[in-house]
Design a protein around this nucleic acid. Structure first.
Lengths: 348, 348
DNA sequence: TTGTACGCGTTATCAA
DNA sequence: TTGATAACGCGTACAA
């Protein structure tokens, strides 16, 4: 291992230096730092304040953490940090953390269990106090291990029932049913459901199941549930073609199980020269900054992402503060935003 | 004795525990941890490995960091983490960090100098080894302070010449000129430039100046440079109306200085019922996932964001490895992506 | 090849 | 209201 020698450009200022120039002991300075002003004399307090400013002192968090067995660090493990859904959650989580003096370490897994595991190890080494994770579901034993140490874990978006952890997300069944029911009521008679691979991802499963349930409830055949791996573009295109060939223009619609696949589908439609909603209607999960700008506007199920991030983070802090109540499953209501991509076709 | 009691209470596995169960000293374990295998007997090495696995030991990074005066932490201070431009950079930076065992702490400033300052202090407390920052430009003295400690700082996107720091971004002058020149060649005779407030943000200034320069070069009057504060929607709308009233249909175009304002402008146009490009042509900085889907597709200047993140991070590591060469200013070429929002209007 | 002893910067415990 | 001292978990001279 090639290590480079680091030169000390500036000697680091320590609590001892502050104590020295303020003419008090380290202990007293430490008390000042942790805000125990009531046991400090006016005099000591002022001199310490002055010394800190003069020396430009910043307490060393590593030393504090080591001593206190607390890092004031939160890990955030996400499948894809470039997904706006994830960043909105991060935004919410970050706001709550900042306010409490915690920092967030971001980890991008690409849905790869191996990467996720590496990150969990790293975060464990850093003694993170809390973890907010959108998990692949393939590293449950390590998550359980983490939870057994002092780490407060909250699962975001994806549940893993066997872990018995707090979960925050949206009510997938409710929202999916509302959306599909809406499309049926608008007169669509053949609705395709496109999702990324279901295995291991509760969110996708819940939405797919809700889709099936509602179709059955309305007496429709469940013929068009497509699972597409988005690594390559081909599979999705093929499945889309299959659906288009098997359906009649005018009464058909597509529902996308999340924002990523919704975007891909819109791209594919454009690529094939198909118009929305004339050739095919479309709707799907995840409101994004562009959904009202594409064609006649895309009908979406909007998730309160920022709120999800805030809530997840608040659960973490509650746990850190000693709340040992049974694990909660917090599901927000999604909001169906109706736009031109799913017009009524009843008269046709 | 006291040790075993403490262990039952806290359950934290330390290097001492590993040493005990492996039957060696802490030092030997430490050598193992830092990969100095050549000074370890086969026997010791195996026993340590086994002990680590058995106890599920993870070295405490806070302790290591404290001892080594290194945190293996990189701070990333960004104006808006939900901006796809920022997350793409983060993605690149993160990939490089992961590979080296570093972690990234994200800090969202909302372009607020006060928030930025708070974050700088916090990061200083954490003894970050490196900082990647998209700065407001209003906390230069604190950045200078950080740089004087052991922190390698790289400015991303926005420069601050007086700090003499490494900078990574895109060649704003070149790309802006190319884009405006392209629009002029396509026959547009009145081009408006919309930007967020110029003050203190080099990127915006460079683009605005390039815009002015090229107009002058072609003998056009520089009448339509609009600085809009996007906190409220009103100002932008008013300015847009001013431009539309002062210009003739058919030969007018809008250029947006970044992705955020480009999106707002497209929204505003839609809101006013104006069509692209029939009523007004439009182009702007920042390629986004939706730019090819809006109307006839939006002409954009694409920045190699992922590459910017990677490069910035690599500069940081180079500095940490002892590179003391003069500060670099790395400017990538942007790429003009021509789409239907800026058709040729020469014949009109 | 291995181990002993000390120190990193901070907080907690106790005594004054 | 203060301070001396012992940890926290690890790495590293120095010794063996």
């Amino acid at each position: 291992m090639a290590k480079s020698i680091r030169k000390k450009l500036t000697e680091r200022v320590t609590i001892t230096d502050v104590a020295h120039t303020a003419g008090v002991s380290k202990t007293t300075v430490s008390r000042y730092l942790s805000g125990q002003y009531h046991i400090l004399s006016e005099n000591a307090r002022n001199r310490i304040q002055e010394a800190i400013r003069e020396l430009n002192y910043r307490p060393n968090q590593m030393a504090r953490g080591l001593k206190q067995d607390r890092s004031y660090l939160i890990g955030m493990v996400i499948a894809d940090i470039t997904n706006p859904f994830s960043t909105a959650i991060l935004r919410g989580a970050e706001d709550v953390c900042k306010q409490r003096g915690y920092s967030i370490m971001v980890c991008n897994t690409d849905n790869d269990p191996a990467k996720e595991r590496e990150y969990i190890f790293m975060l464990q080494s850093r003694r993170i106090d809390g973890l907010l994770i959108n998990t692949t579901g393939r590293n449950n034993q390590f998550l359980r291990q983490l939870a057994e140490e002092h780490t407060a874990i909250v699962l975001v978006d994806r549940k893993v029932p066997e872990l018995g952890l707090d979960t925050v997300g949206v009510d997938n069944e409710l929202s999916t049913k509302e959306a599909i029911r809406f499309m049926i009521n608008r007169g669509y008679e053949q609705i395709a459901f496109f999702t990324e691979p279901l295995e291991g991802v509760s969110t996708r499963q819940e939405r797919a199941n809700a889709f099936k349930d509602i179709l059955i409830q309305y007496g429709f055949p469940v013929a068009d549930l497509y699972e597409a791996d988005l690594q390559q573009a081909e599979p999705l295109l093929k499945q889309l073609e299959r659906f288009l060939e098997s359906s009649r223009e005018g009464k058909r619609a597509i529902f996308a199980a999340n924002g990523v696949i919704l975007l891909k589908l819109i791209h594919a439609l454009k690529h094939k020269g198909l118009r929305i909603p004339d050739d095919v209607a479309i709707a799907g999960f995840d409101e994004m900054e562009w959904t009202d700008l594409i064609g006649p506007g895309i009908t979406t199920v909007s998730q309160p992402t920022y709120q999800i991030g805030v809530t997840a983070m608040e659960r973490i802090f509650r746990r850190l503060e000693g709340d040992h109540s049974p694990s909660q499953n917090i599901a927000f209501a999604g909001k169906l935003i109706i736009r031109g991509s799913t017009p009524s076709v009843k008269g046709l």
